[in-house]
């Protein structure tokens, strides 16, 4: 068993001859927070979707504690201890906040096919604790369909934590949120993962968030890793500055909101 939470080698994805991701290698240590940044179309989401099992890679290997993830379905990868949040939140709109978390817990405890017990009564305590953790306990009884966007992101985080994951994959966790909310949510995430020793891989457009919370940053451009290292190193990397950070088009907030 490898010591690394994730160990990615030679990851490639081609769409009809166009390489969206080519030859990405990286490791993720337990408890580490790794940010994946890059301009739009750099291949971040594609990378994510391969890690998550949504798309099969064209080539390469993804190992989690030494076990191959390529070829596994998202639900199997989840069962190995990978939690996930989405760029555009995905929750169960017809369920309450609490029920959304309970649903994940029911799945975690393998009781999806139970026909008799009331689902609403199962794992209530645990679900509440998770909601408290993300600061959503007061809204536990509200339907997800009426929540503010920032609150949905918190619910997603609680859901992602339900299976006591060893790894969190967060695709633009703060997209579409107000600046103040962004910082709060990321701080919260950072605290939780630190406390629980969870590794995090996230993509983000907001450089404040990235440089504040990431232990390490990987810069992707046109499907390749162009730089990698501590936030400070990456900030000072001339290539990054040239291709990405330094152009003055570091990041356009309005565009981000539009994309979300």
């Amino acid at each position: 068993m490898s010591a690394n939470t994730l160990s990615v080698r030679g990851l490639c994805k081609n769409y009809g001859g166009v390489a969206a991701v080519s030859g990405v290698d990286f490791d993720l240590a337990p408890g580490e927070i790794l940010a994946l940044i890059g301009p739009n179309g750099a291949g971040k989401s594609t990378c994510f979707n391969m890690l998550n099992g949504q798309f099969p890679p064209s080539a390469g290997s993804i190992k989690m504690f030494g076990e191959e993830l390529v070829g596994k379905k998202p639900r199997q990868i989840w069962r190995m201890g990978v939690g996930r949040t989405f760029q555009i939140t995905a929750t169960f709109g017809s369920m309450t906040v609490l029920e959304n978390v309970q649903m994940a817990l029911i799945s975690f405890h393998d009781r999806l096919r139970a026909l008799w017990p009331f689902a609403g009564g199962l794992y209530q305590e645990q679900a509440f604790q998770l909601l408290e953790l993300v600061g959503m306990a007061t809204q536990a009884g509200r339907p997800c369909s009426v929540l503010a966007y920032g609150d949905l992101k918190r619910v997603e985080l609680a859901v992602a934590l339900a299976n006591s994951p060893k790894l969190l994959l967060m695709d633009e966790p703060t997209a579409g949120m107000a600046p103040k909310e962004r910082i709060e949510l990321m701080q919260l995430t950072a605290d939780i993962v630190k406390q629980r020793g969870i590794s995090v891989l996230f993509t983000e457009h907001d450089m404040d968030v990235v440089f504040t919370h990431a232990n390490r940053i990987m810069v992707l451009s046109r499907g390749r890793v162009v730089a990698e290292g501590k936030p400070k190193e990456v900030r000072e990397n001339p290539e990054v500055q040239a291709t990405y950070l330094g152009t003055g088009a570091v990041y356009d907030h309005s565009k981000d909101t539009g994309a979300a």
Binding site: T91, S94, R113, A114, A119, G120
Partner: peptide, 14 residues
């Protein structure tokens, strides 16, 4: 109202 019903709704919702 049982877990299985919730599971079906989960599949439907998202």
């Amino acid at each position: 109202f049982a877990p299985f019903g919730y599971t079906l709704r989960a599949c439907r919702d998202s």
